[in-house]
Amino acid sequence: MAQGLLRLCRVSRFYGERAVLRNIELVLAPGQALLVVGPNGAGKSTLLRLLAGLLPPSEGEITTELAPGEIGYLGHKTLIYPKLTARANLAFWQAMFGLPRDDAPIEAVLARVGLSRFADEEAGVFSRGMSQRLSLARVFLTGPRLLLLDEPASGLDPASAAMLRREIRAAADAGAAVAWVSHNVAADLAVCDRVVLLRGCRVAYDGPARDFDPSGLAGECVC
């Protein structure tokens, strides 16, 4: 099996008696943009949390060459503090990641996600889309080698979603591995290198994006 930043070997995950993922084999390579698709309940979010190390596998093994702090994760929640300003949120994460206290990178990522004008406003007053953009700024700020994004376009307007796709492609081109979950398969296929389709708790497809047929996506999740 190819070397990669992170490798899942026969990984399964159960919640109580219920299997969410079974015997997953996956390698994340640097510079690769991986799109994870599948019906609701197929285990996409669980897969991302396993990749992030936030959940231990029930069976199997996960090996990684990543050091602590080299994973950028965006989940269903935005991971921001609503009572802090956008700038204070980013300054906090800068400190937690051991980065030097410097306003320039904060200004740069805020500009990158189009939030410069709102830097000193409390994040709690942001719309869902603005919160999502702030969360993306948090991910970009730390320069991760692996980006794990769970439905990152959720709440974004079409222009912001297009910006997100450009950023995903740029991160992969810069050498990072990117894995993201999306239901907007048609649009995201254009920027990904590889697709993993989860169905029935297993990998139903793992291959190049150009060979993936999105018309077969409709299906039930039965484990």
């Binding site: 992030a52 602590p68 994760y73 935005t78 937690m96």
Partner: peptide, 10 residues
Amino acid sequence: EGARLGLLLS
């Protein structure tokens, strides 16, 4: 907003 996950990933 789930910031615990961010702390754990730092």
